[in-house]
């Protein structure tokens, strides 16, 4: 767009002006840009990129954080592949993706399907409420849900009140229920985001598309698959990327709600990395887990984006 403007300008002015205009035109390479980028790049490079590179470097060492480290090549990675706790951590993350990503996206789409039949008045209020969980610090979220899941907390009281008292249990202390309970926290945090994302997207779908579908005799279900879902593809992709990354990170809630327990049933990679680095003093090993986690996140984000961009061409 910028080059168009420069070309227009050039055709309307004299030769001398043209040369000057072109020299200053935004379409030309401008070294002054570096002046504006360098300060930001410096912080980003020094405190984000450089530490990441340093993590990769550390992952090739056997180091306790105090004495001199030993270069052991891929030793940490080999150990990680054989470590049952690493495998469990990633398996737990995969299970959390169901709760953090799949469930909220499915819920969001279902609601959007119901809601797009007509405009929603007072959406601002609902939007504000639905988005609230996104604003709350993970530590606070953990405290709130520790109470909700507590032995005498609201969830168990509710179950007892409706005659399902036999299901009541201390959810976060239960070996088979702790992980799904943590997942429930993730669903709570992300479903509003998905809903608002999809509903906002759906409200901007031209009404003529729906009219056309209805003239063709499409019911609610076909209307959803023929009109709403295709129009929301970008939003769905974004929601998947965001929520999947959240599921793989999820350190704050785990650390504060379960500390990985009971036993190791809610260990996730970031938590196990933290334990290795700052509790067991296995710094190199922790770095290797961090690298594997980063690679997993980039790979998953890459896959989602690749699949969605291929859909664009088709």
């Amino acid at each position: 767009m910028a080059t168009d403007t420069a070309a227009q300008l050039g055709s309307e002015t004299s030769a001398g002006d043209r040369a000057r205009a072109r020299k200053r035109a935004p379409g030309e390479p401008r070294n002054v840009a570096w002046l504006y980028i360098l300060p930001g790049l410096l912080f980003y490079g020094l405190f984000t990129l450089a530490p990441l590179a340093h993590t990769v470097e550390l992952s090739f060492f056997d180091w306790d954080g105090l004495t001199v480290g030993h270069y052991i090549g891929l030793g940490n990675y080999r150990e990680a592949l054989d470590d049952p706790l690493v495998r469990d951590s990633f398996r737990h993350s995969a299970e959390l993706i169901v709760f953090y990503a799949l469930l909220p996206v499915a819920l969001g789409l279902l609601l959007t399907a119901i809601l797009t039949r007509h405009p929603v008045r007072g959406f601002t209020f609902f939007r504000t409420a639905l988005f609230l969980p996104q604003m709350i610090a993970g530590v606070v979220v953990a405290q709130a849900w520790v109470w909700i899941y507590a032995d005498n907390g609201p969830l168990n009281e509710f179950l007892r009140d409706v005659g399902l008292g036999s299901l009541a249990r201390p959810w976060l202390g239960d070996f088979s229920w702790a992980l799904p309970a943590v997942g429930g926290i993730g669903t709570w945090v992300t479903y509003g985001l998905c809903m608002v994302l999809f509903i906002a997207g759906a409200q901007s779908i031209p009404a003529s598309l729906y009219d056309a579908a209805r003239v063709d005799g499409a019911g609610a279900v076909r209307e959803f698959f023929a009109v709403t879902l295709p129009a929301l593809r970008n939003q769905v992709v974004v929601a998947f990327v965001l929520t999947t990354i959240n599921a793989l990170r999820s350190f704050d809630v785990i650390y504060n709600a379960t500390s990985g327990g009971p036993g190791t049933t809610t260990y996730v990679p970031s938590f196990y990395m933290y334990r290795n680095a700052f509790v067991f003093n296995r710094v190199g090993y922790a770095a290797a887990i961090a690298v594997i986690l980063t690679a997993a996140i980039f790979t998953l984000a890459g896959i989602v984006l690749y699949v969605s961009s291929r859909g664009d061409e088709g």
Partner: peptide, 23 residues
Amino acid sequence: LFGVFLLGIIFPYEATVIPLYYD
């Protein structure tokens, strides 16, 4: 270069805390 900045958005900063601590 813009792509490098974009990386920072999906990037898990958990992977940087270990060297940050020691540095």
